[in-house]
């Protein structure tokens, strides 16, 4: 009994530390939120300043954007399912759902890059107008976040395959799923403010 209690105490201390690290990451997310706030503010202020270049309405093709939106939304769901598998101690399920999330993330970034390349070919570059400068900065910053998340998630899948579910990898999965949900939330606002308001 005494042994069990001390073991529990040790676990508890470790648990607290991982919890603290998760909270530290949460604070990072909140500051990232403020970063996106500045980019959104810039975009909203400049979005009608097209300087003779193409307007949002001429430029955006909604079918691709709608597909991107649902892909990212589904990946947010599957990253949640990964956490759920982890809590059940199901390593295979955890890695499986992370790989599904990764595939969806890669599909999202690929579609976004294709969209950007297409726009640049039509003469809509980052230096064309204030609207496009703020557009590429805001949407590009989000895409960059997703890309970083993909690299990070691949590394985490490799680590999970080697080490399995430990208190450390558990915390890492919790953190990356928070990051992924956060990116989906940012995308909801990109979708609304940039694309829907652009074509309405």
């Amino acid at each position: 009994m005494a042994h069990a209690a001390s073991h529990h105490d040790h676990d508890h201390g470790h648990h607290d530390q991982e919890e603290l690290k998760t909270f530290g990451f949460w604070i990072f997310l909140m500051t990232d939120c403020i970063l996106f706030a500045t980019l959104f503010a810039t975009f909203v202020v400049l979005r009608l300043n097209t300087s003779g270049g193409p307007t949002a309405e001429e430029l955006f093709s909604m079918p691709g954007i709608i597909a991107e939106t649902f892909i990212l939304l589904t990946s947010s769901f599957t990253s949640g399912l990964a956490v759920l598998s982890m809590q059940k101690g199901d390593k295979k399920g955890l890695i499986g759902w992370l790989i599904v999330t990764l595939a969806l993330g890669i599909a999202f970034v690929t579609m976004e890059i294709t969209e950007f390349v297409h726009m640049v070919h039509e003469g809509a570059t980052i230096s064309t107008s204030g609207f496009l400068s703020s557009f590429f900065t805001l949407v590009g910053a989000h895409g960059l976040h997703v890309s970083i998340g993909i690299v990070w998630m691949i590394a985490l899948v490799l680590q999970l395959a080697r080490r399995g579910i430990t208190s450390v990898t558990k915390r890492k999965v919790t953190i990356i799923s928070l990051y992924w949900h956060f990116l989906d939330v940012v995308w909801i606002f990109v979708f609304t403010v940039v694309y829907l308001m652009g074509v309405m």
Binding site: W26, I34, T42, V44
Partner: peptide, 21 residues
């Protein structure tokens, strides 16, 4: 604390966005 930092971030966010507009 998660909720408190979130509220702080939202206050700053709304100030930046609404203030700029």
């Amino acid at each position: 604390y998660n909720l408190m930092t979130l509220i702080l971030a939202v206050v700053i966010l709304l100030t930046i966005v609404a203030g700029s507009i």
